Simulated assay, not measured.
Amino acid sequence: MPDPQRLAALRDEIAIVGVGESDYSQDYALARRGERYSDAYGYAATAFRRALDDCGLTRDDIDGLIAGPATASERLGEVLGMDVRWADQADAVQAVLKAAIAIHAGVAECVALVYGNDQRTAGTAYGGRDAMGGERHLAYTYYAPWGLTSQGALYALLANRYQAVTGLTERELGQVAVAQRAFARLNPNAVMRGPLHIDDYLSAPYICEPLRLYDYCLVNDGGVALIVTTAERAARLGRPAVLLSGIGRADHNRDATSLRPRLVDFYRPAQRTAAEQVYTMAGAGPSDVDVLQIYDSFSVHVPLALEGFGFCPQGGAGELLADGALGPGGRLPVNTAGGHLSGSYMQGWGHQAECVRQLRGEAGERQIPHARTAQYVSDVAGKVTSLIYRRADA
């Protein structure tokens, strides 16, 4: 069982002091024309350089490196010109957790979390028999006996069941895509910035019913980097810093390679456990969250997270969506850079950068006024994780 006292010792001790991202919109345009700009390591290097510039540190100040899953940490360190004493490999949310634990344990003091992915120009397969290495690597390919060899098929089945149980309508689900596109239109670096109205959503074709074109995430190239250090060192930098205040994690592993956790429970038991942990550690609750970022490879992630983490009653997400609460000017801004559906699909890494920018008041036209607390939520293959960030001066 998690130890609340040990977790409490981590609260506000770790700070994100630098963020950097590549030029998603520009690079997407190049990819559509068949003009390859870079590879995964090149995008990672661009983001890393910008993150260093953002916080005023140099490569020599970095003694830890965590590489995203599309690059190897050994090679990435070489490309970035680093000789760190501690390195690891992780996805977005696990990278933040591992960096926090490493710094707290004294293994490192300043860790770069760096992600690069050329998934569009490389033609990465996210569906089919050979999706990213097949069943040796991805749990969703275990669903092949049911003919479900893509994530889209899995989430379509989940969405069907969820609609049947809760009464969520297609129009209500469509408001997820509409709200995120409205934020993307305020983000000059977003990939999709054209207008999207609910009628546009409803007239789009099904990809796998009931999921339509705009329920699916983008596939684009890019890179993201975060510089993480101690709160004490962050204060000495004299620059805006964002503190990690809460951590929640709960896996739903029983029958993980069957359909039960998705279709029967909607991962709610794991969500409730992770929610209790993250809110207790942060000394906060859903009503304290100013900005919410939800992992959204598909739109249906959003209503599940809203209910699972207590932002609305179970079965109440549809009403929240219909009210326009999630978009610009709404009472619960979600995925304020456009999310994976319209902003950029950086597999959760961009969500961390957006949390930081919102809390530092640097999000431009999409800035949420007086943002002091941001939460990130992800549920992927039954692994539910949440982070709560807050301004250092909040």
Score class of each variant (00 low, 15 high):
37 Y>R: 15
127 G>T: 04
40 A>V: 09
146 W>M: 13
143 Y>C: 06
100 A>N: 02
87 A>T: 13
280 T>H: 13
243 L>R: 04
308 G>F: 05
368 I>R: 13
314 Q>D: 12
92 A>P: 11
175 Q>G: 09
381 A>I: 02
380 V>K: 12
358 Q>N: 07
242 V>C: 12
192 M>E: 11
392 A>G: 03
194 G>C: 01
70 A>Q: 14
268 R>Q: 07
82 M>L: 15
372 R>Q: 15
110 C>T: 15
91 D>M: 10
53 D>G: 15
93 V>A: 09
116 G>N: 00
298 F>H: 11
54 D>K: 04
135 E>W: 05
183 F>Y: 07
270 A>H: 02
271 Q>I: 00
155 Y>K: 02
384 V>A: 01
373 T>H: 11
74 E>F: 15
140 Y>C: 00
150 S>M: 09
141 T>R: 14
111 V>T: 13
249 R>D: 12
290 D>K: 03
134 G>S: 11
95 A>P: 05
375 Q>T: 05
207 I>Y: 12
271 Q>R: 07
274 A>V: 06
88 D>C: 08
117 N>T: 14
104 H>A: 13
315 G>Y: 09
21 E>H: 04
326 L>F: 13
299 S>W: 04
232 E>N: 09
300 V>S: 06
131 A>L: 00
169 T>H: 13
344 S>A: 15
264 V>D: 00
177 A>Q: 09
325 A>H: 11
165 V>K: 12
101 I>C: 08
318 G>H: 01
131 A>M: 05
392 A>P: 01
278 V>C: 03
17 V>P: 05
142 Y>S: 14
145 P>T: 04
205 P>A: 12
341 L>I: 07
384 V>K: 00
342 S>W: 05
272 R>A: 06
85 R>C: 10
294 I>E: 07
258 S>F: 02
284 A>L: 01
114 V>W: 06
271 Q>K: 08
149 T>H: 02
329 G>N: 01
362 E>C: 12
319 E>V: 08
145 P>E: 02
351 H>P: 01
259 L>Q: 02
168 L>Y: 10
113 L>A: 10
108 A>D: 00
123 G>T: 10
226 L>N: 05
394 A>C: 09
70 A>D: 15
172 E>M: 10
179 A>E: 04
240 P>I: 04
179 A>L: 03
73 S>L: 12
273 T>D: 12
149 T>D: 13
196 L>N: 10
221 D>L: 02
250 A>C: 12
42 G>Q: 06
3 D>P: 11
280 T>D: 15
41 Y>E: 10
314 Q>V: 13
134 G>I: 11
170 E>K: 07
92 A>D: 11
200 D>K: 03
18 G>C: 02
229 T>L: 06
179 A>C: 05
43 Y>L: 05
54 D>E: 03
245 S>R: 08
102 A>F: 05
39 D>K: 01
85 R>V: 14
223 G>T: 08
279 Y>M: 05
314 Q>H: 12
394 A>G: 15
23 D>T: 11
271 Q>M: 15
274 A>I: 02
384 V>Y: 01
186 L>H: 11
